[in-house]
Design a protein around this nucleic acid. Sequence first.
DNA 1: ATATTATCCGGACCGTAGTCCGTTTAGCAG
DNA 2: CTGCTAAACGGACTACGGTCCGGATAATAT
Lengths: 220, 220
Amino acid sequence: MFFVSLIPIRSGSPLGGEAERSDAARNRELLLKAARELIEECGADGLTMDRLAERAGVGKGTVFRRFGSRAGLMMTLLSDSEAAFQGRFMFGPPPLGPGAAPLDRLVAFGTERIAFVLEFGELARAADSSAYNRFDVPAAVLWHRHIEMLLRAAGVTADPWLMAMSLSSTLDPERLLHAVRVHHVAPERLAESWCELVTRVVSCPGGSSRRTENNSEGGG
Amino acid sequence: MFFVSLIPIRSGSPLGGEAERSDAARNRELLLKAARELIEECGADGLTMDRLAERAGVGKGTVFRRFGSRAGLMMTLLSDSEAAFQGRFMFGPPPLGPGAAPLDRLVAFGTERIAFVLEFGELARAADSSAYNRFDVPAAVLWHRHIEMLLRAAGVTADPWLMAMSLSSTLDPERLLHAVRVHHVAPERLAESWCELVTRVVSCPGGSSRRTENNSEGGG
DNA sequence: ATATTATCCGGACCGTAGTCCGTTTAGCAG
DNA sequence: CTGCTAAACGGACTACGGTCCGGATAATAT
């Protein structure tokens, strides 16, 4: 069983967690405070790095040295809730945490994740919007591994890594928010559909050999 | 059975398909030619609207009036191949087109779509990158409806719309390219995993009633 | 040929994310 | 307290997508 570095997410410091100069620490707090205020007032989409710098009374360069990018800032803002979520599905009580059947944990995971995304909607989306490595951010890797691990535990033998990727994509914030906000899908429907999906993926006997022409079982 | 406006994608003209002034037509051709050249030279990601305008010898405003946005331009560049793909899965020979069993058509659809995305990778990703309505673009709606239709035909009763959304998300260009380019997943593995996924989704008996006490399957 | 008008053109302009580099300062040694 | 240095600062700068509107022009009527 593998382990990611344990609630990695993202601190405020640039990279190495070494000591932080006092002015840097002070500015980080100023920035986080200003960011929360701005989001309160204008929403996450209304937060621009310029306005944030101005509001916090620091230079723009400082903002980017602290958080690397806009997405990095959003991740930092999410990190508390995110860490709590991670703690719950890794160490918390069943059915989300260890102890329950893998399928039950999968269902619980998706349900909670959907609720999380819908609660912190704009933030979660903004945190994703980094250019390329959206999927290699520590938190995303952790979810992926968690799903993959549960799939294996549930006896899914067919390429659990890719299957976990498919399941993860279903929980993509942008898609979930789009369904809810544009198509007015009720959140419970999302959870039910997730349940349906993972149940089928897990419960079905491995039906791998049906694409090639030999012994197709249910061709129809 | 519903029908989208039939190979809608996007022409070059702004909106209403009315007559196009000769200079407008000339500029559209100049722009498309320049765009293909630039992509040849710098890749799709290296194409900027400024450089395109300069290369084509037109003003920047012209570029945006023609194509609306960068994503719109990319869609136009893709439209030929896209139309061919649409034609094949809507009217072409089985197993992609009508005539085969729904599950076989689903498998074929995903396989072809994966190949399509991998072939026109950068373009497909760039065409998606519009801000909000990524999922409401005509082509995306058509795929979604197609998958949904096949799911219904295959007897999947549990919220086919959302199930189609999940399956669509698996075929998202950004994710597919990420898997192939960053994680070096072989394209055949993607196809196999897709096959596995849809097989399980379709073949499994409706397992809806396992999360809630009352076995009601809401539908939409 | 001339006048009219709807359409199109072009490039200056804007807001935004992200970079660069000369300047300032915190932390520390003597 | 003074001097030193590595780190942090800040804001001008770049690159980009997208908008705007005064001027140019193709199509058409007379």
